[in-house]
Lab assay of single mutants.
Amino acid sequence: MATVKFKYKGEEKEVDISKIKKVWRVGKMISFTWDEGGGKTGRGAVSEKDAPKELLQMLEKQ
C-alpha cells in the first residue's frame, strides 16, 4: 500500500494511505487526518507537488 511521507513539528513521519480518514486542500497544501489507534487522531500536511497520486485521488472523491 502507498504511504505519505511528511514532516510534522520537525519530525519525519510516514503514514499508510489506508489509515487516512479525511483529506482537504489548504492553498497549495494537502492536509489530512488519520487514525493512530487508541482513539487518537493524527494530523499532517504535504505540498501538492509531493503528494502521492492516491492521496490526490482521495481528495477528488470528496
Score class of each variant (00 low, 15 high):
residue 52 P to Y: 02
residue 33 T to Q: 09
residue 9 K to Q: 15
residue 40 K to Y: 12
residue 13 K to Q: 06
residue 29 M to T: 05
residue 35 D to E: 04
residue 37 G to D: 08
residue 2 A to M: 06
residue 10 G to I: 01
residue 48 E to I: 04
residue 59 L to E: 10
residue 29 M to Q: 13
residue 45 A to K: 03
residue 6 F to P: 02
residue 47 S to G: 15
residue 29 M to I: 11
residue 1 M to K: 14
residue 13 K to W: 05
residue 50 D to L: 10
residue 18 S to Y: 04
residue 14 E to Y: 03
residue 11 E to R: 06
residue 3 T to V: 07
residue 38 G to D: 10
residue 39 G to K: 07
residue 15 V to A: 02
residue 46 V to N: 02
residue 12 E to C: 13
residue 31 S to Y: 08
residue 57 Q to L: 04
residue 45 A to H: 06
residue 37 G to H: 08
residue 47 S to E: 15
residue 48 E to Q: 09
residue 53 K to P: 12
residue 45 A to T: 10
residue 5 K to F: 01
residue 29 M to C: 15
residue 58 M to V: 11
residue 10 G to D: 06
residue 62 Q to M: 08
residue 19 K to R: 09
residue 24 W to S: 12
residue 38 G to H: 09
residue 37 G to F: 10
residue 9 K to R: 05
residue 4 V to L: 03
residue 3 T to N: 03
residue 42 G to S: 08
residue 5 K to S: 02
residue 8 Y to D: 15
residue 11 E to M: 10
residue 10 G to K: 01
residue 57 Q to S: 05
residue 1 M to I: 15
residue 26 V to D: 14
residue 22 K to Q: 15
residue 13 K to V: 10
residue 17 I to T: 03
residue 8 Y to L: 02
residue 18 S to D: 12
residue 27 G to N: 13
residue 22 K to L: 12
residue 15 V to Q: 02
residue 54 E to K: 04
residue 34 W to M: 01
residue 5 K to Q: 02
residue 61 K to H: 13
residue 44 G to E: 02
residue 19 K to G: 09
residue 30 I to P: 00
residue 62 Q to R: 04
residue 60 E to N: 12
residue 53 K to H: 05
residue 31 S to V: 09
residue 31 S to T: 08
residue 3 T to C: 03
residue 48 E to L: 07
residue 3 T to P: 02
residue 35 D to V: 04
residue 35 D to G: 04
residue 26 V to L: 06
residue 35 D to H: 09
residue 53 K to N: 07
residue 10 G to N: 04
residue 10 G to V: 01
residue 27 G to E: 11
residue 32 F to D: 00
residue 41 T to H: 14
residue 43 R to L: 15
residue 15 V to I: 11
residue 39 G to Q: 10
residue 6 F to C: 12
residue 51 A to T: 13
residue 2 A to Q: 04
residue 10 G to L: 01
residue 12 E to G: 03
residue 27 G to D: 15
residue 41 T to V: 12
residue 59 L to P: 02
residue 5 K to I: 03
residue 22 K to S: 15
residue 12 E to N: 05
residue 25 R to P: 08
residue 40 K to V: 12
residue 10 G to W: 01
residue 59 L to Q: 08
residue 27 G to Q: 12
residue 5 K to P: 00
residue 26 V to Y: 06
residue 52 P to E: 03
residue 20 I to H: 00
residue 51 A to L: 05
residue 55 L to R: 00
residue 54 E to C: 07
residue 51 A to G: 13
residue 22 K to C: 15
residue 28 K to Y: 15
residue 56 L to M: 15
residue 13 K to F: 07
residue 6 F to K: 00
residue 48 E to K: 08
residue 37 G to E: 09
residue 21 K to P: 03
residue 4 V to G: 00
residue 42 G to Q: 15
residue 21 K to Q: 15
residue 28 K to Q: 13
residue 19 K to A: 06
residue 3 T to M: 05
residue 40 K to R: 14
residue 36 E to K: 07
residue 56 L to A: 07
residue 6 F to R: 00
residue 37 G to M: 11
residue 28 K to M: 08
residue 2 A to R: 05
residue 44 G to R: 01
residue 53 K to G: 14
residue 3 T to K: 12
residue 54 E to T: 04
residue 30 I to R: 00
residue 57 Q to T: 06
residue 49 K to N: 09
residue 32 F to T: 01
residue 43 R to G: 08
residue 13 K to R: 11
residue 32 F to Y: 00
residue 24 W to G: 07
residue 16 D to S: 09
residue 45 A to I: 04
residue 24 W to Y: 15
residue 9 K to M: 14
residue 61 K to V: 13
residue 58 M to K: 14
residue 36 E to V: 13
residue 49 K to C: 15
residue 59 L to G: 04
residue 49 K to S: 05
residue 14 E to C: 07
residue 58 M to Q: 05
residue 61 K to Y: 14
residue 37 G to A: 06
residue 31 S to F: 13
residue 35 D to C: 15
residue 57 Q to N: 09
residue 58 M to F: 04
residue 1 M to V: 10
residue 9 K to Y: 14
residue 41 T to Y: 09
residue 25 R to K: 11
residue 59 L to R: 06
residue 47 S to D: 13
residue 55 L to T: 01
residue 42 G to R: 11
residue 24 W to P: 00
residue 38 G to Y: 03
residue 22 K to A: 15
residue 56 L to N: 06
residue 34 W to P: 00
residue 20 I to W: 01
residue 55 L to M: 09
residue 61 K to A: 13
residue 44 G to P: 00
residue 61 K to I: 14
residue 1 M to D: 05
residue 58 M to S: 06
residue 43 R to D: 03
residue 6 F to D: 01
residue 44 G to Y: 12
residue 15 V to Y: 01
residue 4 V to K: 00
residue 46 V to W: 01
residue 45 A to C: 14
residue 53 K to M: 11
residue 6 F to Y: 06
residue 35 D to A: 07
residue 7 K to F: 07
residue 1 M to Y: 10
residue 19 K to D: 12
residue 49 K to R: 10
residue 26 V to M: 11
residue 4 V to Y: 01
residue 34 W to T: 01
residue 53 K to F: 06
residue 37 G to L: 12
residue 7 K to S: 05
residue 62 Q to E: 14
residue 2 A to S: 09
residue 54 E to S: 07
residue 61 K to Q: 08
residue 44 G to Q: 03
residue 49 K to F: 08
residue 1 M to Q: 15
residue 47 S to K: 10
residue 53 K to S: 10
residue 42 G to K: 11
residue 40 K to D: 12
residue 52 P to S: 03
residue 57 Q to H: 07
residue 23 V to E: 00
residue 17 I to C: 05
residue 15 V to G: 01
residue 6 F to I: 10
residue 37 G to I: 08
residue 20 I to D: 00
residue 13 K to I: 14
residue 48 E to V: 08
residue 55 L to Y: 00
residue 20 I to F: 05
residue 3 T to I: 10
residue 57 Q to M: 15
residue 61 K to T: 12
residue 37 G to S: 06
residue 20 I to E: 00
residue 30 I to E: 00
residue 30 I to Y: 09
residue 35 D to P: 10
residue 3 T to W: 01
residue 27 G to P: 10
residue 33 T to N: 06
residue 27 G to H: 08
residue 1 M to C: 15
residue 36 E to Y: 05
residue 37 G to C: 15
residue 34 W to N: 01
residue 15 V to S: 01
residue 53 K to Y: 10
residue 48 E to H: 05
residue 47 S to M: 07
residue 51 A to M: 10
residue 30 I to D: 00
residue 58 M to D: 03
residue 39 G to N: 12
residue 21 K to M: 14
residue 14 E to L: 03
residue 3 T to Y: 03
residue 15 V to E: 02
residue 34 W to Q: 00
residue 36 E to G: 03
residue 42 G to M: 10
residue 23 V to Q: 03
residue 35 D to I: 06
residue 60 E to A: 14
residue 45 A to S: 07
residue 57 Q to G: 07
residue 4 V to E: 00
residue 30 I to A: 02
residue 46 V to Y: 01
residue 3 T to R: 06
residue 38 G to C: 15
residue 16 D to M: 10
residue 13 K to P: 00
residue 23 V to F: 05
residue 56 L to Y: 11
residue 9 K to N: 12
residue 11 E to H: 05
residue 19 K to V: 10
residue 60 E to I: 11
residue 12 E to L: 13
residue 25 R to Q: 11
residue 58 M to T: 05
residue 27 G to M: 10
residue 54 E to N: 04
residue 2 A to P: 09
residue 55 L to E: 00
residue 60 E to Y: 05
residue 57 Q to P: 07
residue 20 I to N: 00
residue 9 K to W: 07
residue 40 K to T: 12
residue 40 K to L: 08
residue 24 W to L: 09
